[in-house]
């Protein structure tokens, strides 16, 4: 149970960074932390303690049931989610580099052309 709670704490740290920090890079890091928290949560759902890896082998196929194996599906999904997270991070970082070129700062309170 404690690991789910820690996941939640990690998620909140990320959310705090996104909501409070003013530096664009810190916001991006916060978003990544939120993503990692969710990925960790997703993997934990499929995790079974002391279980085998989910690959069928011909040697002892009789002893293998779905009960003593880790659920592989969340891991596959998390892989996809990590790749998507990578794409998002790349775009955010490249946008913030372009913004830095225009304004000479990473502070979002100084980048405020759009209002209302």
């Amino acid at each position: 149970m404690i690991e789910y709670f820690l996941c939640f704490v990690l998620f909140c740290i990320g959310l705090y960074a996104v909501a409070v920090k003013r530096n664009m890079i810190k916001i991006i890091i916060g978003l990544s932390i939120m993503g990692y928290a969710i990925n960790l949560f997703f993997t934990l759902i499929g995790y079974v303690h002391n279980a085998a890896y989910p690959i069928l082998s011909k040697v002892n196929i009789t002893q293998q049931t779905s009960l003593n194996m880790v659920d592989p599906l969340p891991q596959a999904l998390v892989l996809t989610a990590i790749v998507i997270g990578l794409a998002i991070t790349i775009i955010l970082v490249s946008i913030s580099i372009r913004l830095y070129e225009k304004y000479g700062t990473f502070d979002i309170t100084e980048i405020r052309k759009l209002k209302g």
């Binding site: 959310l15 996104v18 978003l31 939120m34 969710i38 998002i88 955010l92 946008i95 372009r98 913004l99």
Partner: peptide
């Protein structure tokens, strides 16, 4: 341009929170 990049950054941050 400046406002395009700013709008895009805002959209992306909020969009990522949404997808999380």
């Amino acid at each position: 341009e400046q406002d395009e990049l700013e709008a895009s950054f805002k959209y992306m941050v909020l969009g990522t929170v949404a997808s999380t």
